[in-house]
Amino acid sequence: MKRILLIVIALIGVLSLMAQEEPTKDRPVRAPFNSGILIDNQTSVIPADKTLEFQIQHKFGKIDNGFSDLFGLYAPGANIRLALNYVLIKNLQIGYGLSRIRMYSDFSIKYTIHEQTRRNTFPVAVAVFANMAVDGRNKSDFGNNYKFGNRYSYFSQLIVGRRFNDWLSVQANASFTHYNITEPGIDHDKVSVGFNGRINFSSQSSILFQYDIPLKIKSITEHREWTNPAKPNLGIGWEIRTSTHAFHIYLSSTDGMIPQHNTVYNTNDWTKGDMMFGFSIVRFWNF
């Protein structure tokens, strides 16, 4: 595990040095994605510096009850996340969000280390995303021996993406999640991988897709066997982008809004139809 971390840190260091080299005439490709989020994932895209984003994310209930609750639209237990992000300097964004599930407060940072260039001098975009979340439930929900540190969880992700042409952009990611405290039977640490992308079908609309897989790695698990491991997260959606907004309407198999929760606690199995509708609205202001 330490070896993997060292390799990731070394890779980030090398890429950062490359990013600081003298600018060449090879310019970055046009935006591979329309916004910084893609259903439940992050993209390598960060808006122009001094851009403020307000994100409204909403997930309904599971679709499996059919018409009785209109495929989950009227089901109880919907999840909501409201967030503000701000681009401090070019390619560096910070943010804060608050979710209904576990009342997570998440503080995030994203840095696009290098953008893909048009003449393939640098053929991919590379970004890192990290957050720290604070579980905001009542003290009594944490059982005996309560410490404030029990509320913390961390998520870090390396994103590598490529805009192949005007209509297709794809990303792959590798992530590490850590919870200071978890429920019995659930690992504190989890490594996951995933891929996602967009297919443009008009000047303002795209189809989005994602698939995230929490890995079962024996060397880091604390348990002899996995009794109820987190399930992969499948998502498919439709994105509409205007000058000041990005809208997503999607189907996703996780009810969480922050990536560490989705990686560790997702019990929904998309192969059994455990999916739910959701939408996101992102409003951009430039200063």
Binding site: R30, Q204, R241, T242, S243
Partner: peptide, 14 residues
């Protein structure tokens, strides 16, 4: 022209 139309539709058309 295609790029121009895409950007026009996104930012100007409304």
């Amino acid at each position: 022209v295609k790029l121009g139309r895409t950007i026009y539709n996104k930012h100007c058309r409304s």
